[in-house]
Computed example of a mutant assay.
Amino acid sequence: MAFLGLRKWPTPFVKPLWPFMAAGTITMYLVAKAQDSGIRSEEWRKDARNPYAAQLAKESLH
């Protein structure tokens, strides 16, 4: 007998959740790339609020 849809023996963790893990990984990667491109954009490169402004200024000198 199943209690609230749960089986007597637990199912493996990765098997039913692999699509969600893959989608989460892809989403995190794309958000990180969008953030990096936004920080490095010409509009925000010299802005005082950009925490990476000093680092980007050093990179642009080379």
Rank of each mutant, 00 (worst) to 15 (best):
M1N: 08
A2M: 09
F3W: 10
F3A: 01
F3P: 04
F3K: 03
L4V: 09
L4G: 07
L4H: 12
L4C: 15
L4D: 03
G5I: 05
G5Q: 03
L6I: 11
R7K: 15
R7D: 13
K8E: 09
K8P: 15
K8I: 13
W9H: 14
W9L: 11
W9N: 09
P10D: 02
P10W: 02
T11A: 13
P12S: 06
P12I: 04
P12D: 05
F13R: 05
F13S: 02
F13Y: 08
V14Q: 01
V14T: 10
V14R: 07
V14L: 05
K15L: 07
K15F: 12
K15Y: 07
P16A: 05
P16S: 04
L17D: 05
L17I: 05
L17G: 03
L17P: 07
W18P: 00
P19Y: 03
P19H: 01
P19L: 02
F20P: 01
F20S: 07
F20E: 03
M21Q: 09
M21K: 09
M21R: 08
M21F: 13
M21V: 15
A22L: 14
A22C: 10
A22I: 05
A22N: 03
A23F: 11
A23I: 10
A23T: 12
G24Q: 01
T27M: 11
M28C: 11
M28G: 09
M28I: 14
M28E: 08
M28R: 05
Y29A: 07
V31P: 02
V31T: 08
A32G: 04
K33T: 07
K33Y: 13
K33I: 13
K33Q: 06
K33L: 08
Q35A: 11
Q35Y: 15
D36Y: 15
D36K: 14
D36S: 14
S37G: 14
S37H: 13
S37A: 15
S37E: 09
G38A: 01
G38Y: 12
G38F: 12
I39Q: 00
I39N: 02
I39W: 05
R40G: 01
S41E: 07
S41C: 07
E42D: 11
E42M: 12
E43M: 12
E43C: 12
W44G: 00
W44Q: 00
R45C: 01
K46Y: 06
K46D: 01
K46G: 03
D47A: 07
D47C: 00
A48I: 08
A48E: 02
R49M: 01
R49D: 00
R49Y: 02
N50Q: 00
P51L: 00
P51M: 01
P51Y: 02
P51K: 06
P51G: 02
Y52C: 03
Y52S: 05
Y52T: 02
Y52N: 03
Y52M: 02
Y52R: 03
Y52G: 05
A53L: 04
A54R: 13
A54V: 14
A54I: 15
Q55K: 15
Q55R: 15
L56G: 05
L56Y: 09
A57N: 06
A57P: 11
A57K: 14
K58H: 10
K58V: 10
K58T: 12
E59F: 14
S60Y: 15
S60P: 14
S60D: 15
L61S: 13
L61N: 10
